[in-house]
Design a protein around this nucleic acid. Structure first.
Lengths: 248, 248
DNA sequence: CGGCTCTTTGACTGAACTCAATAGTCGTGG
DNA sequence: CCACGACTATTGAGTTCAGTCAAAGAGCCG
């Protein structure tokens, strides 16, 4: 990773000045923190005084009902922040756990407030990030509520691929996908058995090749069509012919 | 409505100074806008230069798939804002429509930015509101993904009741609930036929009395238990014995 | 009195779940 | 080098919750 992932991600929404990129990068001054597979990074009910960003690995937001049912709410990958202002709430309303080994950088409340006060552009970038995160959460509602099991899994692969591409971790149809079938089940509101069967169907139809932790999408447009995937909800930066020549 | 609903709602999360209350209230200076049942207030794909707050009536966020399937993502009631910074995005990623006749107040980008720059407390209040809105959206994912049809409807009634109570529109187990069964179906990821059957079951068990547009919850704790409802995700202001004597 | 919207009911179907067992895979330790 | 356990993936058979299709009531309004 040559570029600081969170800065890379924010820059994907809107142009950041060199100054702003430096400011975001400075947030990571703290010693990086590591968590191993399965560890909670944030636990529901916990009182927070800091927030964090993911530098490496995958995490997931989730909630567990009293009787043990678990819903995974989203996956966090390199560049993703926990809510930048989560410490404004009295306690965490959901948990975040490491899906793989994870490296984070902690950001103190003070650092976040200073940096944002001094950089109105960054403050807006944080808002845009929050708005896009909310949009992704809404799209999960659409998936779970309306899409078939087949479409739901397809859609998740499309989303993850698109998000990883932004931070340079997906290319040529290939990216990591370290999520097991139990997690996939809890993310999509299905059972692991059914996830297994639908995955086989997806493979049979040549839509994906999934050999954990490696995902290959041979024909992205076809998968996107099967998923009713419309990337607009991720608010990709409009193509700027000046700055990026890497598309066609 | 004696108090300006958006101010009342923000104040429910954290203490606002009289100054801040005045500032929020000032946002409504513009002429109120009215929309009649079914009208779109925001349409997906639309470019926004303003945002708005709901003063009266109910609205809903929703998305429609290419083939017509609709997912309702949340209901907006008096005091709710559309995202305060939605104009930062290039286009709306979902639509908002009037569920009943609705009165809104439009807030221009400039007004929002001025007010927030001059009131750091308000800027934080906006963040808290966005965080709570996101938390509600996550809880909808939990409902649709994990709760049974019965629990899902129960949970929705609990949520709405709690939110209306904050702005003084629910009391003694009674509140408005103007949503029809098709909308209820699209909000919970079920079909209208099944919604109908589950509603009858809820009635039979004495958990709700629903005569559109009036909802009566005879025994809130019992309904909350049936829904696995835990109000924590709404981040209610911790009870302050000084200021509010209206409980017990 | 239609005509519209919404709710209710019945009979049938099917996508996804449950339960239960069987196979890989991988790292550890004997 | 193999046995063992832990974890994950796969398969089969039977079940059910919720969906589909179709039609009949209710309530409201012009």
């Amino acid at each position: 990773m040559t570029v600081f992932a969170p800065a890379q991600k924010l820059a994907a929404y809107a142009a950041l000045s060199a100054n702003e990129v430096r400011a975001v990068t400075a947030l990571s001054e703290g010693r990086p923190q590591t968590y191993s597979v399965g560890a909670d990074i944030v636990s529901e009910g916990q009182q927070l005084s800091t927030t964090f960003m993911i530098l490496q690995g995958w995490a997931m937001r989730y909630k567990v009902l009293r009787d043990g049912r678990r819903q995974i709410l989203s996956f966090l990958v390199a560049g993703d922040m926990c809510d930048p202002y989560c410490f404004l709430l009295h306690q965490a309303d959901h948990s975040i756990a490491a899906v793989t080994d994870v490296v984070t950088t902690t950001v103190s409340r003070g650092a976040m407030e200073d940096i944002v006060l001094g950089n109105p552009g960054l403050a807006k970038a944080m808002w845009v990030d929050a708005l896009v995160t909310a949009s992704i959460q809404r799209e999960w509602c659409v998936s779970i509520g309306q899409r078939s099991a087949f479409e739901r899994l397809s859609h998740l692969f499309c989303e993850i691929y698109a998000r990883l591409e932004v931070v340079g971790l997906a290319k040529g149809g290939r990216c990591a996908f370290p999520v097991n079938q139990y997690e996939l089940a809890d993310a999509t509101g299905m059972t692991a058995v059914h996830v297994n069967r639908v995955l086989q169907d997806l493979r049979k139809r040549g839509l994906i090749e999934l050999q954990r932790p490696d995902l290959f999408i041979p024909d992205l447009p076809r998968l996107q069509a099967a998923a009713l995937f419309d990337p607009q909800y991720l608010h990709p930066k409009p193509r700027d012919p000046q700055s990026e020549g890497d598309h066609l």
